[in-house]
């Protein structure tokens, strides 16, 4: 992916070049590119005067950031306690089988990234799965296929 210096700079100027805004700046860049391209981090480092190692430190510390490109569709399976005891592990495994990737990875065709989240705070309707911001309540192994199909179709 081509990184445009101007775009990155505008993410930085939005926060008045303040070092304390690093996390917000990285969040904006991630929003733009869906991940944090190396080139973008270099620009942030130079512009803000923060050593690259500290930026990478922050980028790898927080779950929100990805240093690798992510898929077109983001599947997030909630594995919080309430979802766990209602069968979330089986649902995650079913997604892993159907997509043929492990949690945290992206499918070879770049269509789906599979991630987990520790809790979405809607425990009453668990197990919960989010695909591209759409919540699926009370999911079960049986519903996994239909959920994926719905979003595969959407791309066309």
């Amino acid at each position: 992916m081509e990184v445009e210096e101007l775009k990155i700079k505008s993410c930085i100027t939005k926060y008045n070049y303040e070092k304390k805004a690093l996390i917000s700046i990285l969040q904006d860049i991630q929003e733009e590119y869906n991940y944090l391209p190396q080139e973008a981090l270099n620009i942030v480092s130079k512009t803000l005067g923060i050593p690259l190692i500290d930026i990478v430190g922050v980028a790898t510390f927080y779950r929100a950031f990805s240093l690798e490109p992510r898929g077109k569709h983001l599947v997030t399976v909630c594995v919080g306690t309430a979802c766990h005891i209602r069968g979330a592990p089986n649902i995650l495994e079913e997604f892993e089988r159907k997509l043929n990737v492990k949690a945290g990875k992206t499918t070879g065709d770049g269509q789906f990234s599979l991630e987990t989240v520790a809790c979405l705070g809607c425990c009453a309707i668990g197990p919960v799965v989010i695909v591209d911001g759409n919540y699926y309540a009370q999911t079960s192994i049986r519903k996994v296929d239909a959920i994926l199909k719905k979003h595969r179709k959407k791309k066309k």
Partner: peptide, 11 residues
Amino acid sequence: DEGDPGAYMDR
């Protein structure tokens, strides 16, 4: 930063 899984009163 209500992180406890299974807790969502703050939300």
